[in-house]
Amino acid sequence: MDGSMTSVREGILDLVADFIENPARAAATAGRGPRWCVGLACFGVAGLSLYLSQSLVRLSPLNPASLLLACVWQAAAGVFMASLLHLLAEWSGGRGRVGSVFVLFGMSQLVWALALPMAVLAAFWRAALPAYWICVTVLAFSALYLRARSLRDHYGFAMGKAWLLVLFPYLAGLLLLMAALALLAIGLVSAVRLSF
């Protein structure tokens, strides 16, 4: 039993280490059979890191329910994003597995673990707060880059196409928001002009 647990841990660590050192190998390993628990664990780590970082920066009290919600939210967002991008990838000619994409995206989110040391530093030293926010921005872009790289390695796409796929949901969301605001503005202007 201990031996199997050790080998499972080593397998997970291998996967994460490969994701950093040898992304193609990590993509291949994930492609052989998705390990949902690895993906969930990675999203859980990301959620924990983000929640603790924000709590440290705001010095808000620790709330277990909020922490759990943060982790669940990360996992749910990961499922949604993996499904959506897998669909888009398949429509654009790629062949792969949605479970593997979920695992790879989970490992992409592990970068958020780096936000925690910065947040601890900012909690002790307020002058480090701007550095924390710069770090968060860099990590956000890093997470996006790692997702694009995962799509490239899993589906065999070119990097440009992978970036386009990763950014597509955000661009679509932005366009929808702009359209909604435009409609709201038109509605308000029409309401104001009713008196004429």
Binding site: L48, L52, S53, L56, L59, P61, L62, L116, A119, V120
Partner: peptide, 8 residues
């Protein structure tokens, strides 16, 4: 993580 929780 342990340090962060302790601080909070």
């Amino acid at each position: 993580v342990f340090l962060a929780v302790a601080v909070l």
